[in-house]
């Protein structure tokens, strides 16, 4: 099984910043007007996935 990664769908993200304000690892940043997960910092806790109001964050292989 490959490691799961948390990823923002850049076509869906509306740049509200909610996921960034809540990530316990400060692994999310705004980049080019979209939220972006820094894989080196993310621990795949899933908090941002639950928080995104439009469901633009998911886990991928």
């Amino acid at each position: 099984m490959g490691k799961l990664n948390t990823k923002v769908d850049e076509r869906g993200c509306l740049a509200c910043g909610g996921c960034i304000s809540i990530c316990p690892q400060a692994a999310l940043i705004m980049f080019g007007g979209r939220a972006f997960v820094r894989e080196d910092k993310c621990i795949c806790c899933g908090i941002c996935i639950k928080t995104c109001p439009i469901g633009a964050i998911c886990e991928v292989d």
Partner: peptide, 13 residues
């Protein structure tokens, strides 16, 4: 420490 707990954020549309 500005990181919000999930119980301290309203997520909106």
């Amino acid at each position: 420490n500005t990181i919000l707990k999930p119980g301290d954020l309203e997520t909106c549309v």
